[in-house]
Design a protein around this nucleic acid. Structure first.
Length: 481
RNA sequence: GGCCCCGUCGUCUAGAGGCCUAGGACGCCGCCCUCUCAAGGCGGUAGCGUGGGUUCAAAUCCCAUCGGGGCUACCA
């Protein structure tokens, strides 16, 4: 049997990190088993679905490298893979189900239903609607004939129970007393999620449904529906939910849940994929690092954890730093140059681009998030007209400030060749001459050329900045003392 | 309220009766390296929710309890 899995987000919001994790696990499972990963658009909630959300989901799936083999935007044997294009099919199924007695027209009003649920709650019994509020056969026929609108409900066989073996949760059993005669077709003729999703899973030959635990209690409905259609239910796997730092389901109020926020914050897709895999699965025995292909090789749905996982940004940042450090210099430039230019508000000249490239190895290991790059190299491309206040106070407004700058100027201006080695030699000489320790002797120079006590390594920075500019900056700072 | 799921360091996890005086990773703390900041190296901190069983032996099995979460829509 060829594995066919699907990720079926509703375009009612931006791609959420939790949804991205579900997509990733589907992707890993498909690839680990030589299967097909399908993307579907479950847009039956026409009021809340938008093209913008749909596009955001697509964009970020691609960005994360979660490319799909078949489905939305890519096509396949099953049309557009967009549910709103298949209303006729769902309606047909709903009516077939009425024919076969598995569903019925329901006239119960929401007031009646509320009363039913309230009574059940007070009595401490199951609040699941059992169809007991419906009119008799004859009346249904005449009311339909009279054109009265009704909803179509699935008739849950009672008594009874549905059993299934969930890949991550093992044996599950649901008493039908607890499951509603749920609506499959709304009064306006559009399908509900339960119907559309189940019909598609059947029609598309989905073999494994890997989704969030929030759908666990709906699974009996889907299985019952599938069986009523005369089909074999898929294998289900329900992933635990992602939690916020407060232990509650991860949501907007925990800050950023939209994948786009992480993208703009400067996270790498590789790092996010790796991190998301860690949330509910162990990538290796003593290692948390794994590339997509390594994850594909090792992925085992049975080994996925049942525990809900807290989304911890700190570890994500650490991983991001790891990936940045491992990136090739060229790749690093490609991914950060635009951000640097954006920060400057202009393009870099060829000479400046060379300076930037020279700085890359130094900057790479000091970067956790991409936008931090601009902060580190900005001093190369802009005049230092303001110095960081604390930095200035800490090293310049001290007796060693002018001493260090004067000595550095003397030592540096006499240099024949301007290189990291000669610069270091000259400045080390300053230490001996002035008796200052390295910290006191070097920090004033650092502030003079970069504006701050924190910068990339000093000697290299001086070399890259160039002799003339370096000496000018030291002189400018000195004149302020 | 009803039904369902889950419960190992602060966080993510390894652990499927003796290999566990519970391992790894992030974080945090300290030391080293060092021109700042990082990175790196070394060391440390911290956990089996609780109470009963079963067993020669339990983080691992059973029961109860407590705690957290999900669902309970003509949303998905």
């Amino acid at each position: 049997m060829t594995v066919r899995v699907r990720f079926a987000p509703s375009p009612t919001g931006y791609l959420h990190v939790g949804a991205a994790r579900t997509a990733l696990y589907n992707y890993l499972f498909a690839h680990a088993n030589g299967g097909t990963f399908i993307l579907r658009s479950d847009d039956t909630d026409r009021a809340r679905s938008t093209e913008e959300f749909q596009q955001d989901i697509l964009d970020h799936m691609m960005w994360l490298g979660l490319d799909w083999d078949e489905g939305f935007g890519k096509g396949g044997e099953h049309g557009s893979y967009r549910q709103s294009d298949r209303y006729d099919r769902y309606r047909d199924v709903a009516h077939d189900l009425i024919e076969s007695g598995s569903a019925y027209y329901s006239f119960a009003t929401s007031e009646q239903l509320d009363g039913f649920k309230k009574a059940a709650r007070e009595a401490g019994t199951s609040p699941a609607y059992d169809g007991s509020l419906e009119p008799g056969y004859g009346e249904v026929a005449s009311r339909i004939a009279a054109g009265e609108s009704a909803v179509i409900r699935f008739r849950v066989p009672r008594p009874g129970e549905t059993r299934f073996s969930d890949v991550v949760r093992d044996d599950m059993v649901f008493d039908h007393k607890q499951v509603d005669d749920f609506v499959i077709l709304r009064s306006d003729g559009t399908p509900t999620y339960h119907l559309a999703s189940t019909v598609d899973d059947v029609d598309y030959g989905i073999t494994h449904v890997i989704r969030g635990e929030d759908l666990l209690s709906s699974t009996p409905k889907h299985i019952l529906l599938t069986q009523a259609m005369g089909a074999e239910p898929a294998t289900y796997a329900h992933l635990s939910l992602l939690m916020g730092p407060d232990g509650k389901k991860l949501s907007k109020r925990h800050g950023d849940t939209a994948m786009s926020a992480y993208r703009t914050a400067g996270f790498l897709p590789e790092a996010i994929d790796n991190y998301l895999a860690l949330l509910g699965w162990s990538v290796g025995d003593e290692e948390d690092r794994a590339s997509m292909s390594e994850m594909v090789d090792r992925f085992d749905l049975n080994a996925v954890s049942k525990n809900p996982a807290v989304f911890d940004t700190q570890k994500l940042e650490w991983l991001n730093g790891v990936y940045i450090r491992e990136m090739g210099d060229d790749d690093f430039v490609a991914r950060t140059l635009a951000g640097v230019e954006d920060d400057l508000g202009r393009e870099l000249t060829d000479d400046e681009a060379s300076q930037f490239e020279a700085m890359v190895p130094l900057v790479k290991e000091r970067t956790k998030l991409l936008p931090e790059v601009a902060d580190q190299v900005r001093f190369l491309f802009t005049d230092i007209d303001t110095y960081d206040e604390k930095s200035w106070a800490k090293v310049m407004d001290k007796p060693e400030g002018p001493v260090a700058l004067d000595a550095a100027t003397a030592a540096l201006s006499g240099l024949e060749t301007w290189s990291t080695e000669t610069i270091e030699g000259a400045l080390r000489g300053v230490l001996e001459d002035t008796g200052l320790n390295a910290r006191k002797g070097f920090q004033p120079v650092r502030v003079a050329i970069s504006g701050s006590t924190v910068s990339p390594p000093l000697f290299e920075s001086l070399e890259i900045l160039g002799r003339e500019e370096s000496l000018n900056r030291i002189a400018a700072a000195r004149s302020l003392l």
